[in-house]
């Protein structure tokens, strides 16, 4: 990468989000430079998954902006999905299809083409799934399903990876395989945001989402004073 070029950055500027009328976080600002990995930390319910869904373009923030490489991304206008690849809690696999069919279907949705064969084989090998490539996914164990879902990160090129609990159900060997894939991505100038409770071998910065919890819950539709009246 040329030195004089401005570094590509993912900038989250004073993001706020509400779920069911309850503010989850507010004033969340962070800059992530190309080649950096941000581990989203914090207690259950502090908004890690919500933040990832906002960045994935599935959820609109109640205020604040997200910009990538100097362009402000507005939902439905410049979709964040053009930049980011998201994997949530569900593995998005069709149980009756083989792993190969599932990968092809995903690549066709995301790029309009089948998964390139050599990349498919390479990624399957990376997650130790080569043997299972032509097995229907319903015969997979939950760990194998999770690895099959993680294969998307090897198959589709997007500069930003959004990973929600990527290590759940992985044994140490596959955790290392995942870390290897993540390090390769970072080395090529990608950006990764991962919500996780487990340590992953890939080096990254911790970012505590719960620090942006609203100071008090009084702004909700049922303020605590109101609830106390009823108690």
């Amino acid at each position: 990468m040329a030195i004089d070029q401005p570094m590509i950055e993912l900038v989250l500027d004073s993001l706020a989000c509400q779920r069911g009328g309850r503010p989850v976080f507010e004033g969340l600002s962070v800059r992530v430079k190309a080649g950096h990995l941000l581990y989203l930390k914090g207690a259950n319910g502090c908004g890690k998954s919500t933040l990832l869904r906002i960045l994935g373009g599935l959820l609109a923030p109640s205020s604040g902006t997200v910009s990538y490489d100097g362009t402000v991304l507005q939902q439905h206008d410049i979709p964040f999905s053009a930049y980011a690849l998201y994997l949530g809690h569900q593995n998005a696999l069709k149980p009756i299809w083989t792993l190969r069919q599932n990968c092809d279907a995903l690549c066709r949705i995301m790029t309009g083409r089948d998964a390139p064969v050599e990349r498919l084989l390479e990624t399957a090998e990376h997650f130790d799934l080569s043997r299972l490539l032509d097995q229907p996914v319903r015969y997979f164990s939950s760990g194998q399903k999770h690895r099959a879902a993680l294969m998307r990160f090897g198959l589709i090129d997007r500069p930003v990876w959004l990973m929600d609990e990527p290590t759940v159900g992985l044994d140490s060997k596959n955790r290392d395989a995942l870390a290897g894939l993540m390090e390769k991505k970072l080395a090529s100038g990608g950006i990764i945001l991962a919500a996780t409770h487990d340590p992953v071998a890939a080096a990254g910065t911790d970012f505590d989402v719960s620090a942006f919890a609203p100071a008090s819950d009084n702004s909700g539709p049922f303020s605590s004073a109101f609830l106390e009246d009823w108690a």
Binding site: G56, G57, L58, P79, S81, A82, A84, Y86, G88, H89, Q90, N91, A92, L93, K94, P95, L106, I109, M110, T111, G112
Partner: peptide, 19 residues
């Protein structure tokens, strides 16, 4: 929706409407 692939379909570069 149940297996999560609706997320992927919604995030397709074609946009949700064509999908």
């Amino acid at each position: 929706y149940e297996d999560g692939s609706l997320d992927d379909l919604a995030l397709s570069p074609a946009g949700l409407l064509p999908v």
